[in-house]
């Protein structure tokens, strides 16, 4: 379970997050919704450690947790970026197995076996040796999800997972996210798409722009 207590974040004197409290129980899906500029993505970036907060605390499984500086490989928070940010110089397989080998110190064979299981699970079989530019948007997104899952994250975060895709792929994304929920994956999804949020979420957090 991830708990956020009194999280505050400012950019250049503008308050983005003000005393935010939040609980994400294990295996549940939290959707963060709100208009653009409200701080949805900022909140996600704070949770995943890409931004530091000005004050407040994070608690992961009962322990204080510092997303920006945590190096404990049992407490990874995975991120699927809006534009996926796959590594263009690596094949699908290498995109997925690079970090498990370098960071989790898995052997090449081990990393590839685990990677292959996820590749099959997310319907990417046969794409292992392609480069990202050879994939469609939906395939890139699934590679990004597999790449994040290969690090055995505690929580998986998505930034606007439907916005870079064709509208008819929305349901596929829903199925993927709900499928991972069945494997007890805790997920946090930032989206501006209310229907999408209602279809997947156990809990919906609305963020509003803070008036100065």
């Amino acid at each position: 379970m991830l708990t956020l207590k009194n999280i505050k974040k400012q950019f250049d004197g503008r308050t983005i997050l003000d005393n935010l409290n939040l609980e994400v129980p294990d295996g549940q899906i939290l959707a963060i919704v709100g208009p653009s500029g409200a701080g949805k993505t900022t909140l996600l970036r704070c949770i995943s450690g890409l931004e530091t907060v000005d004050s407040g605390e994070f608690i992961l499984d009962g322990q204080p947790y510092d997303p920006a500086n945590n190096r404990d490989n049992d407490k990874v928070i995975g991120v699927v970026f809006q534009d996926f940010q796959l590594f263009p110089n690596l094949t699908v397989k290498d995109n997925i197995t690079l970090a498990p080998q370098l960071v989790l110190k898995q052997s090449k064979a081990d990393a590839e076996a685990r990677g292959q299981a996820l590749i099959d699970q997310l319907n990417l079989s046969g794409k292992e040796d392609l480069y990202p530019y050879q994939l469609s948007g939906g395939q890139k997104q699934r590679v990004a999800i597999v790449r994040a899952l290969a690090m055995n994250p505690k929580i998986l975060c998505y930034d606007e997972p439907t916005s870079a895709l064709d509208p008819d792929l929305r349901q596929t994304v829903e199925q993927i996210i709900l499928g991972l929920k069945q494997n007890q994956m805790t997920q946090i999804v930032v989206t501006h798409d209310m229907t999408f949020a209602e279809n997947i979420a156990d809990q919906i957090l609305r963020v509003e722009p803070i008036k100065a």
């Binding site: 890409l50 991120v79 796959l86 110089n89 690079l98 960071v103």
Partner: peptide, 27 residues
Amino acid sequence: IPNGQYESARVLRLTRSQTLLRIVIPQ
């Protein structure tokens, strides 16, 4: 090289030198 490449390497816990050698410098 877009900043997102560094960020996605970072959330995958790659070190600075791993990011440079394996991701950034080849590009």
